[in-house]
Structure formats: structure tokens, C-alpha cells
Design a protein around this nucleic acid. Structure first.
Lengths: 192, 192
DNA sequence: CCTCTATGTTGACACTGAAAACATTCTAGC
DNA sequence: GCTAGAATGTTTTCAGTGTCAACATAGAGG
């Protein structure tokens, strides 16, 4: 116990929980400097392990990123599960994206091949199912797939455009206003 | 003239039009294997030039990508300019994205810092202005900024979700149907 | 003609993903 | 307990990349 402080169990040759530690390190990199800054070597470095060790847990770099993305879907799904109203879901969705831009970008990155990462595909499908269920409740008379796609497209596009600074520099309050207005506009379309 | 064939002017030490050639090579790479596969060295290789030559025309890799993105905005803007109806714009937008996924992704990549690339910012603003003008025509009674943002979010999100294979594997026809249905739904919202 | 400047080239450095060969530890089955 | 064999880490190595500095060449303007 002499060389380890609180929270870090003593580690010998074997790390004990490298996979989780790598995910944590990569998550920190994601927040600090974006997905492009994530490297297996830096993650290994931060985990205090050789540069090659990550390959025992992730087949390649993309697999690490896919795992990070899956985490994101899980968290977003958990938050969405606590919400009944469709508009709340929209707000929550955009807020998640703005709060964790790197993670959000990763979750919908075209670089991540879902066929190669079943976990990711499953996590993302769960969110999709959740949305469709919500939509059926709100607009039962319409084709739920179409409405769900429209609803998702709307909030997803808004989040993406905001992140890409495509809508100009909006301050916190006008951003909120825009989010409200856009989702309300959609709600009107549903009822009309 | 003995060493050059048609279309390729004879080149000595100086290339003559390296910048354009590099953009073309990078564009090909973008189509072939995505933005991630674009490297300055490979572009140089394809242009038949030393690995360091690109730096005379692009400050760094990101600047090359930004130039490619700006090209994309220009082309999309040109196409959009020939269209009057807002719904046509939506279709055109999504089709462009599906036709040139790599380019589209680049155009809205969060990695590209618009502040560092005024050309890109300008090209993107032009498209935005075009859209707002179209919106004012269709729904003059509403706040054009809100409606434009909603319209853009909708088509942008749909394009992005389709590209990310987030909506499941749709064949050509059901994809068209979905695009039609989603844009129509939005049109109803505008009139309602 | 001759210099100045734009454009290319060479060579180096640090970093990365990835694979192969080797070392250590943990865990079953005896 | 002891001991194979499976997991997990390490070392070493390779090819590729972005970027920079020092140098070479060509073209344009005086």
C-alpha cells in the first residue's frame, strides 16, 4: 500500500481494469481536445501502460471510438427514459449535444462502421425505439416511422448546426429561444 | 512536348497549377475513401510533386480540407440558386449530401474552424442567406430566422442521419419516400 | 541582364497505428 | 498446492503522417 494513494489500487504487471481506464482516458481526451486528439498511445500513456497494451482490449482505434460512442448512446438513452413529453426529449437531445459535443459527434460519425460494432448498433437502436414509442403516444394517427424520423431529424440537425457554428454565434439565451421555437414549430406541425 | 500527353501541360520544376491539382487529388481521395484518408503527402504524390510542396499552397492539412469544404458550399449554393420552391431546396439538399457524403461531412465538420478560414465562413453564409430568402417567400408571416433554422435543421438532420446509417438500411425508393414525407410534414407545419 | 520572390525539393523529427515476438500473471483442472 | 494454458502487458519494429528548416530553381520586373 506504500506506493498507491486512495482510489488507485496497487497495480503490478497486470493493470486490473485497463479497458475501463482506457475508456476514461479517451473520454478525457475527447472532452479536452476532440475526437481527433484521441490516440491509443496517449490513452495508454495516461493509463500508465505500454503503448501496445490497448490492443488487448480494442482491436484498433476505431473500436475504441465505437466504445466511447456506445457509452454516449447509453447515457442519452438513460436521460431520455426519464422524460415523457416529446418536446422535452428534443430539448434534452440538443442539450446533450451541446454539453458533450465530441461525444455527440462520435455517436453519429460516419467513420464508425456499425456493422463492425454490434454494441454500438444496438445502443443506437435502443434510442431509436425509445423515440418511436414517444412519437406514437403524441401523434398516433400518423405513420410513426415518418414522424419519428422527422422529429429526430429536426433536433439532430439543430444540434449539429449549432455545433458546427453554422447558425452564427448565438449566446446562451438566444440559443435557448431558438431551440424552443424550433421544437414548438414542429409540435404545431404534428397537431395540424 | 515529348513527355506530356493531352490535358497535361509539360511541367518542369514548377508545376504551374499545383493548388488546383492538389484540390482535385484531395477531392478524389475524399470520394474514394473519405476525409480521413486525405493526406497532404498522398495528394502531393498524386500531383507528382514532393511531399512538402503542398505547404506552399496550404498552411496545414486543415486548410486543405477547408478549401474542399468551401468548394462544396459553392456547388450546393449554385444548385440551390436554380430552385424556387422550399421543398425543392430540401430535396436538393439531401440529395447532395447522399451523392457526396464525404464533401458534405467536411462542410459541416466541427473540426474546421471557421474563424481560421474566412473563405469557408463566407461560402457557408451565402448558402444561409439563400435559404433565409427562400423562407421569407414561403412563410412571410413568421420569424424568418426561426423558420429557416427549422427548415435547415430538418433537412440537415435527415441527411446526416441517413449518412450515419442511423435510420436503418433504406433502399433507394423508401429513402425517396421518407424524404418526401418528412419535407411535406414540415410544409404542413409552416402553413398550419 | 540580374536580382527578388514565388514555388519546389531534400532531409529531418516526432508522432501515430499496427503487428510480431516475448514476458508475466491468473486461473482451471488435476 | 501444482501446473498447463489462457489472458494480459511489454518490447521492438515498421510504414505512414504532419510539419519545419535549409536549400534549389525558375520566372518576373527592374
Amino acid at each position: 500500500m506504500s506506493t498507491s494513494s486512495a482510489g488507485e489500487p496497487p497495480r503490478g504487471y497486470h493493470h486490473g481494469d485497463l479497458r475501463a481506464t482506457l475508456l476514461q482516458a479517451a473520454g478525457a481526451l475527447l472532452v479536452e481536445s476532440g475526437a481527433g486528439a484521441i490516440s491509443l498511445r496517449e490513452a495508454a500513456r495516461r493509463a500508465g501502460v505500454s503503448h501496445s497494451a490497448p490492443y488487448r482490449h480494442f482491436a484498433d482505434r476505431q473500436s475504441l471510438l465505437a466504445a466511447l460512442a456506445a457509452e454516449g448512446f447509453a447515457e442519452l438513452g438513460a436521460r431520455a427514459g426519464q422524460v415523457a413529453d416529446l418536446a422535452d426529449f428534443g430539448r434534452l437531445y440538443v442539450e446533450f449535444a451541446l454539453e458533450q459535443p465530441g461525444r455527440f459527434g462520435l455517436m453519429f460519425s460516419a467513420e464508425l462502421d456499425k456493422a463492425r460494432h454490434p454494441d454500438l448498433a444496438q445502443a443506437s437502436k435502443r434510442l431509436h425505439d425509445l423515440l418511436e414509442a414517444g412519437v406514437s403516444r403524441v401523434a398516433p394517427s400518423r405513420d410513426p416511422q415518418v414522424v419519428a424520423t422527422a422529429a429526430w431529424s429536426l433536433v439532430h440537425g439543430l444540434a449539429h448546426l449549432l455545433l458546427a457554428q453554422q447558425l452564427g454565434a448565438l449566446d446562451e439565451s438566444s440559443r435557448r429561444t431558438m431551440i424552443e421555437a424550433v421544437t414548438r414549430l414542429f409540435g404545431e406541425g404534428l397537431r395540424g
